[in-house]
Amino acid sequence: MTPLLEVKGLKKHFPITKGAVIPRKVGAVKAVDGVSFQLEQGKTLGLVGESGCGKSTTGRTILKLIEPTEGQILFKGQDITSLKGNKLRRLRKDMQLIFQDPFASLNPRMTVEQIIAEPMKVFGINKAARRKKIDQLLDVVGLSGYHKNRYPHEFSGGQRQRVGIARALALDPDLIICDEPVSALDVSIQAQVINLMEDLQKEFGLTYLFIAHDLGVVHHISDQIAVMYLGEIVEYGHYHELYEHPKHPYTQALLSAIPEANPHLQKERIVLKGDVPSPAHPPAGCKFHTRCPLAQERCRLEKPIMKTVSPTGQQAACHFVKEVGHGDRFVVPK
């Protein structure tokens, strides 16, 4: 079966230019640097990583809101990488985006009804059908009909996010890219919105690419998880396996940062030193070597490739991945 979405070697480099009159390229911010994954219909892929690692850029590049520099995006088996104009517009029907900040993603001068109707207007759906669909959508996301004529500022964060979800659903898309949809919400509201998204997935057979920096949230909703660092996927696997047996030292560090509910349970924390290096000048070799507790000479020179590290298909890009035990302790090779 062909996956709904397949991304091959996706790259997005933003040029850094100098000179106002005749700009010349002096470098590039490698926001996304060779990302590949597959996403099957009805599944959820969680994309995690620190801020600035290229998660959102990956999502926007897949939607073609940003033109990719290199690589291929296959949607329903069709290469959409170079689509433009009307063909691209038709594609928008099947792919939608839910935004991080529900305060910024709704036009303050439009009512909820206008906001949800917008995608349908763009695709020329008639007024009666629009009305019906809007009522249906509001019900589905847990808002009431009388909210229709209100403006976004009259709502709370969670309600606004529901409006954003309703807008994304308006055209019955297959794929929804969720760009940190809950990170701007209160923890209590986060659970509601996540539950809503899960319900919707079951009801409409949606496929999610779920971008987040919070592993706890991602664990809850994802089938597969990909961990990104500086524009590359460093580990990929089934959510359960990746959480129980993280192979890559970066994943291990991320997981150790999840707060533990039980205060008596002492957890070994791996605290990474320093900041994420600039994506304009990524380190040579393994990009993680500047902060990796395992780093050796080899890491500085040689770039690790993704290797399958378990029978279920978990993959990691680390030279020492075989030596790393079952996620509990590092074994530093001599």
């Binding site: 910024a104 993603s105 709704l106 036009n107």
Partner: peptide
């Protein structure tokens, strides 16, 4: 540069819209 403009583009709205 705001997100609601990006959202409008994401639903396929043409430039003039």
């Amino acid at each position: 540069e705001t997100e609601y403009v990006e959202a409008a583009r994401a639903v396929g709205a043409k430039s003039y819209r």
